[in-house]
Amino acid sequence: MKQKRKPKLAVWKFASCDGCQLSLLDCEDQLLDVTAEVDIANFPEASRAVAKGPYDLSLVEGSITTPHDAERIHQVRRSSKFLVTIGACATAGGIQALRNFKDVKSFTSLVYASPSYLEVLAKSTPIADHVFVDFQLRGCPINKLQLLEVVNAFLNGRKPNIPGYSVCMECKRKGIICGLVSHGPPCLGPVTQAGCDALCPSYHRGCFGCYGPKETPNTASISEWWMKQGMSDGELLRLFRGFNAYAEAFRKESEAHEE
């Protein structure tokens, strides 16, 4: 029987902490299965060997923050059949997008001795603002099981089972008692996309919104309710200005609470 060519997988890094691509290495038990099915052609965190493109599947981590990266992402797109962004940076601009709410120069002058050597863009932006993205995998960091599901769906030519509904659905399926109702706010679960298997609520913490806004998020309603419960504009602003601060629904909500 003729050996089928294994699909080539590449991992690319832009402005990010590497946590998401490490999720791939973290798939210990399944990593050998993955390498049996795909050729890992480019994965700097794991190996310096780089196989030439084109690539069948590119996983892109990180946001676009420099003019150089804004060029490089087009090369990645050109050499990739499927491009999947992984994590909050690549999908929403990441925690570094907090600077989008201020003038970036006010930060660079504080951090660097000679900021004039830096070439940075005014904003940290998601990959989809620059090139066409085939699928966005959310999370800060991503859930390795969801990553496997995406790779798996790609290999088998099917739609990934990555739902757009709320974290509350996972909470309730797990039988977790809702902390929002039984202890008090805040918990961003009702406006945040599922995917973490309700990690924080499982440990009696409110959801921080790592997976970004869910489908049809109604952030205005929950904020209005929480203000009636005594939360302040400042608290609400900080709540929505986390890892997904620049995702549209969270950005608009935090801006509505600017003083």
Partner: peptide, 8 residues
């Protein structure tokens, strides 16, 4: 306008 469509 109030519903979060959270499914709880």
């Amino acid at each position: 306008g109030r519903c979060l469509t959270c499914a709880n």
